[in-house]
């Protein structure tokens, strides 16, 4: 199979980020329609750009251009949601890899892992994660503690959109238990008179300003009789002791409006 040249990739990035003039865009579109390999590369580059945009790796105007264009169509929104989901699950996988590797350095856990493999071979159970206690002498005990833990309940945190500011004494805390990453669900109730039709939400590390997650077009959900913004994160995206800021902007016919920047602190749950 022939792959398009590397300069084509640069050209496609510029096209997708809105950096080409009208004539240049027309020319690349003619080629995209006629050249299958180039078209497929454009779709692949778009996927990479979406990942970069969600990770806060693109300059703001380019990120804005890309997300505005894609959120205009159902297909674009679907690909954006896929990129967001893969970012969350990819980070979860990275955290799990780290946990597994660290645990396997311990002799007791290596023995447990071997025993667990045997148990798997006879089909007794499916080992999903190992949560061995250091110093356990008996491998069987360790296996008993390592029974599958699939989809534990999400960690919930409700945040008020106004009234809580970074540095204040009333900053809500999110307790994250040790172990495999968990889903974190943030709920932000809206004012009853809020007229925005959708919302742009950005979660940042308040100290480094790094974007942890970005949601360019969120619609409100009815929770307990009140409209709320509900966000889903992975605890693997947050670190213990970190202070996080959730910037919420309302999107409506008159443009966008900052509705609030609530913060919360992450702490390790007592074991």
């Amino acid at each position: 199979m022939r792959f398009p040249a590397l300069h084509d990739e640069d050209r496609l990035r510029s096209y997708l980020l809105g950096l080409l003039n009208e004539d240049q865009a027309d020319e690349i579109e003619r080629r995209l329609l006629a050249e299958g390999e180039l078209f497929e590369l454009a779709e692949a580059v778009e996927g990479d750009l979406l990942t970069a945009a969600l990770a806060g790796e693109l300059p703001s105007p380019q990120r804005g251009h890309l997300l505005r264009r894609l959120t205009a169509s159902p297909g674009g929104r679907s690909r954006l949601a896929l990129a967001r989901g893969l970012a969350v699950l990819g980070r979860d996988a990275r955290s799990l890899d780290g946990v597994s590797l660290r645990l396997l350095e311990r002799p007791a856990v290596r023995a447990a892992a071997l025993a667990a493999s045997l148990a798997l071979a006879v089909g007794v159970f499916q080992l999903v994660t190992t949560t061995a206690v250091p110093g356990t002498e008996n491998g069987a005990n360790t296996i008993a503690q390592a029974l599958p833990q699939v989809d534990p309940a999400p960690l919930l945190l409700q945040l008020a959109l106004t009234g809580v500011r970074s540095g204040g004494s009333g900053i809500p805390h999110l307790e994250i238990p040790a172990g495999a990453p968990r889903e974190v669900r943030l709920q932000l109730p809206l004012d009853p008179g809020e007229t925005s039709t959708s919302f742009e939400v950005t979660a940042r590390d308040a100290a480094t300003r790094e974007v942890v997650a970005a949601y360019p077009q969120v619609t409100a959900r009815n929770t307990g009789g009140r409209r709320s913004i509900v966000l889903s994160l992975s605890s693997g995206q947050l670190h213990s002791g970190g202070l996080y800021e959730i910037e919420v902007r309302g999107l409506g016919p008159a443009g966008d409006e900052l509705l609030g920047k609530p913060t919360f602190k992450v702490i390790a749950a007592p074991s």
Partner: peptide, 19 residues
């Protein structure tokens, strides 16, 4: 202008479960 609510789309949790 009265804002038109955007079309109803599956929420993030449902998509993530599907993924």
């Amino acid at each position: 202008w009265t804002p038109v609510p955007p079309p109803e789309e599956p929420d993030g949790d449902e998509r993530l479960d599907g993924l």
